[in-house]
Design a protein around this nucleic acid. Structure first.
Lengths: 192, 192
DNA sequence: TAAATTTCTTAACCTAGTTTAAGTACAAGG
DNA sequence: CCTTGTACTTAAACTAGGTTAAGAAATTTA
């Protein structure tokens, strides 16, 4: 539980008893590369904390193409918040990009914790707000710049991820083809 | 307060006393067309409920171009949630597109209500979640389709707005130039 | 360790969307 | 009521990014 509590304590310190209550509702599991923890049309019933490894959240369009909308690595939370909170079927998939290790808490247990440990409520409010700001910044940035600029800010914002992820996944996140990302990378390497 | 409470009651019914407490913290005001209720670099200190009229929320890119990221009309809430909750400077503007009438509640008063009237907490959680889902759907849709498809789904999703808004504003929301929207509209009218 | 699959790159050709410019039609405000 | 801006359209030239195809490199899996 170390890594999880470390993240929590960034927001609010917990008492011994609060930690125990949280611990009692959390399960620890390992997911193999390419394993799915959420599939389209099913309800997102788990909130996931990444201990080790890396996940992508993506949607599939009418033409069958996948589009990454978010990554989650060590210390990140991931869930389709819409589906989780409203308990309606998701339009998204969440898949492990590497062999991974996670904590999960399910919807009823989290609601129970919201009541019992008031700090959990506040912590998840902060988590949700951060996710919102992140995605809103993406909307703005996707508008306001060329693919090259977006690639550069992705590199700046997620230096760890950019080394770990295959370029195909990054291209899908940037909303371009892998071929075009290749073109950009060549252009940039010439400049340097 | 009628319209505001009607919206609230969609989520949760309120007692007489709860309504009074909420009412005591809310101020009513009129905003002229082109009036700003939020400006870049200032902190978003007010959560706004639209009684009458219409607003746009937009960001300005490095080249000085505006990009609409959200509209709000009758019955909608609008605020830069990131700035509001973290009390940090906003990167966005919120501007009236028509002469409008609104309710506003400021950050300390809302926090006070969160404590005093527990239902307010739950209501704003629902409001935030809905906003999140909306913006996440936008990210997905912006990826997955041509401007024509996006325009058609905008028409389907916001039929009221599409009649009221000038096409320049819709183009800015779709992430295209007004000229290209014009082209699309011509193409569509030929098909029909 | 070999076979199979996925990843990355290059290049030629194609298209969705931009830019610039010019003209028309309203609407708003003094 | 006139004037100034704002909104809408068209068209020609242009560019960012997509498509297809094919070969080389790297990683998985058997």
């Amino acid at each position: 539980m170390q890594s999880l509590f470390k993240e929590f304590e960034k927001i609010l310190p917990l008492t011994e008893k609060e930690s125990e209550l949280i611990e009692s509702k959390i399960r620890h599991l390992k997911i193999k590369r390419k394993g799915l923890i959420l599939q389209e049309y099913s309800i997102c019933s788990q909130y996931t904390f990444v201990i080790k490894g890396c996940f992508k959240m993506y949607g599939i369009d009418d033409k069958g193409f996948s589009h990454n909308i978010q990554f989650a690595a060590e210390g990140d939370w991931i869930a389709d918040m819409g589906s989780f909170y409203t308990q309606t079927p998701s339009k998204l998939h969440i898949e492990a990009l590497e062999d991974s290790e996670i904590y999960q808490i399910n919807q009823p247990d989290l609601n129970w914790l919201f009541e019992e440990v008031h700090k959990v409520n506040r912590m998840f409010k902060v988590i949700s707000e951060n996710k919102f700001v992140e995605i809103q910044n993406r909307v703005l940035q996707n508008f306001s710049s060329t693919a090259e600029t977006r690639y550069l800010s992705f590199l700046a914002q997620y230096p760890q991820l950019s080394n770990r992820l295959p370029n195909t996944q990054i291209a899908s996140y940037l909303g371009i083809t892998p071929e075009f990302l290749s073109k950009i990378r060549k252009r940039l390497s010439k400049k340097a």
